[in-house]
Design a protein around this nucleic acid. Structure first.
Lengths: 232, 232
DNA sequence: AATATAGTGTGTGAAAATTACACCATTAAA
DNA sequence: TTTAATGGTGTAATTTTCACACACTATATT
């Protein structure tokens, strides 16, 4: 990193966001290209400073919006990074959030703040070096969702509303990084009873069209009414 | 709460600790009696402000020590609380930590700082109202360890080094708040292979003395060498 | 119309894990 | 010696998990 004279500050709170998306069978995260020192021109997770009068949850939403144009995601904090020398300009404590979204929601990525030059999706495999300690933050977040995938219905936030079982399976395979058996996977998923089979089929494919399914949040809640408050 | 004139501050970082212990078949947490406004005389979780030049993990250790006299616990952060109006004097963001310890480690509870009048163990059932939003912090932490009990070897941190299977079972029963079947519990625990049977027996009981066991951290690590890095 | 292509959709048996369940053994104290 | 209290043990039924292979269907190509 180049030497630059910059003001220092005392103690700051910030938010960083690890936003996961799924596209073309690959798991991706949202990165920005920084337009300011330090780490100008580096790739980084979307993140910025929390204001005095906003909760950290609100800050996370606002910051993500300003840097990427994305709004109304359901973000969850997953870890707080508080080492002393994380930031070249002074003490920064950072609460990291993740969210899972549908990339193909035709949402345009368009930074509002000039602080990011652009925002784009990048596959989680072969991530480049990121600014600050963002590589570590990403890793921690990725491990978190990997765990959660198996006991929370987070997969459905990454898929289009109507999806095929094959899509669902390939998402699991991407996250767990291993092949799953098709028959067993389907049997198990369907046995839960929270997938609603639709009367529709896939369109525009040059092979036998697959049935479409929807995640039935109502049924899910009914089945697992128990530990909904264990989430936090 | 009474009205008191106090200085306000801008933005502060703090740590709160939820320290679990197990004694007489009951799960307990460590509380302090506050000696300062606000919430003077109230019961609260041990907690205080993070310094400029210490990491949050270090701060957690220091603060717990100053308020309770306890040192060298293995603390883990579990959630960060960042609502705007959590504290009557201004903006405070708090990273909450938990730890599990052996109460009968003959450790004396003796606050160093005058900020706490005393520190003591209190059963988690029937907790009184706590200062600030500490009741919520406790609840969140309790839910966390309840989950973790089933996939991490945290139970052993609460028991004496040498323990009987009945003690282990009653700990699980206390945390999950339900009765377990003795034979199945023993079969399962022993089947993991990380409990080391000792040649000793319980002493001083007026009934058949039970065998003592030890948790074998080495074997545990060998068996679950896999996702040790998924912890965070 | 025939064929190639590519992904969809289905069942069974073996192995492993989980659950339900009851009685005798041991010790200290009365 | 009796009582009170807890320790310690096995088996069968059920459920869950896992491994495994082939025919079906829609489309594109010739």
């Amino acid at each position: 990193m180049e030497e630059v004279k910059l003001p220092t500050f005392d103690s700051v709170f910030s938010i960083d966001c690890v936003i996961f998306g799924f596209e073309a069978g690959e798991l991706k995260i949202l990165l920005i290209e920084r337009n300011e020192e330090p780490f100008k021109d580096w790739l980084a997770l979307p993140g910025y400073i929390v204001e005095q009068d906003e909760s950290i949850d609100d800050a996370a939403e606002r910051i993500l919006y300003e840097l990427t144009g994305l709004r109304d995601l359901h973000m969850q904090q997953f870890h707080t990074f508080g080492e002393v020398n994380r930031h070249p300009q002074g003490r920064v404590i950072t609460v990291a959030y993740y969210a899972l979204i549908r990339i193909n929601g035709q949402k345009e990525l368009r930074p509002i703040s000039h602080y990011a030059r652009k925002a784009f999706w990048h596959p989680v495999n072969e991530l480049p070096k990121l600014a600050f300690d963002h590589s570590e933050i990403f890793k921690t977040g990725f491990n978190k969702i990997r765990r959660r995938l198996n006991y929370q219905p987070i997969a459905f936030e990454l898929l289009p509303e109507k999806f095929t079982l094959t899509q669902l399976q390939s998402l699991y395979e991407a996250v767990e990084n291993k092949k799953l058996d098709k028959r067993n996977f389907r049997k198990k998923m369907l046995s839960y009873g929270f997938l609603k089979e639709l009367d529709e089929k896939q369109k525009g494919v040059s092979y036998r069209a697959a049935k479409l399914y929807k995640f039935d949040r109502r049924k899910y809640a009914k089945i697992f009414h128990n530990d909904l408050n264990l989430d936090k």
